[in-house]
Design a protein around this nucleic acid. Structure first.
Ligand SMILES: [Mn+2]
Ligand SMILES: [Mn+2]
Ligand SMILES: [Zn+2]
Ligand SMILES: [Zn+2]
Lengths: 153, 153
DNA sequence: AATCAGTTGCAAACGATTTGCAATTGAGTC
DNA sequence: GACTCAATTGCAAATCGTTTGCAACTGATT
């Protein structure tokens, strides 16, 4: 009954080699920690916090600070998208090559279940808001919150 | 040329007495720090961080921790609404009695200018998202970002 | 004026994120 | 395969926003 998601998550995750070549292209080194981090992101459909990534890693594989530095770099290179669920921890999701990664989530306020959302804020309304206030390059951050079926008792 | 905003910000700010009576009603004490904080919120049309409130206060008037505690309490009583602009600091705005305070902002990514926005995410689409995923009590957090007229050169 | 729960200042504690630095290591070069 | 050097890492300390323990204090009520 669940409709197929239209984001890259459904597609076979991009292979590691395409990811590492992107790094090489930017003259970044392919290190153990980085490969491990990308491997984890590749297999997760929803945004992960640095601590969650750290938890997925075999202990001793890599320092938490290294993950923070890696995610910063990956975000700068446009390889991951950063999300904010309002709980004080940044979350990252791998994004496809051309893709700008813009999309939204529906989060259960009780159990933190995350659903990828395909709907977006209507462009016409956004343009109207931008024009009315003489702003340029307007975009938005949008996340939905509610009670998931399982938590409804 | 600027169109009138339709939020409570335009109306004369609610007077201190109506605010303090709300506190009294909840058997909270009207203290110097609290009155000073409310006074500041009353005169600010946009969300303020705790540190900004602290900065507005005459030095020595009140401890930062007291502000954190006051804002927590005011939020619990539904007297202020908390916003998140994604920069790691909570922001609070005074809200009217009946009002649930739900609204959005347009923030300049260069100078942090804030504009109050009256538009909201279309309810029908939100309902559709909720229904499709069997979520209940769905709401959203939404903020717009762009370059304000002054920062466009 | 006496009473007492609610408040406050101050310092320490916290959790997420950043940073300095010396040791380590990819990845071309010979 | 060894050589070289900038990029990277681990570790500890530092930052930042926020929370908390606690003893002193104060507003509201009697
Ligand atoms: Mn997603
Ligand atoms: Mn506002
Ligand atoms: Zn969108
Ligand atoms: Zn809205």
């Amino acid at each position: 009954m669940k409709k197929a998601c239209q984001h890259h998550h459904d597609l076979a995750p991009q292979d590691l080699s395409s990811l590492t070549s992107r790094l090489r292209r930017e003259s970044r080194k392919i290190t153990g920690p980085r490969a491990a981090i990308l491997e984890i992101l590749r297999h997760h459909p929803h945004p992960l916090t640095n601590r969650e990534i750290f938890g997925e890693l075999p202990k001793g594989e890599c320092d938490l600070a290294t993950i923070y530095r890696a995610m910063q770099m990956l975000e700068k290179l446009g390889m991951v998208k950063r999300f904010d669920f309002g709980d004080g921890a940044a979350r990252y999701e791998l994004m496809g090559e051309g893709d700008d990664g813009h999309h939204h989530h529906l989060i259960c306020t009780q159990c933190d279940t995350v659903v990828e959302i395909e709907e977006c804020f209507p462009a016409e309304i956004e343009q109207h808001i931008a024009a009315k206030n003489n702003f340029k390059a307007v975009t938005h951050r949008l996340e939905f919150f509610g009670i998931c079926p399982a938590c409804q008792k």
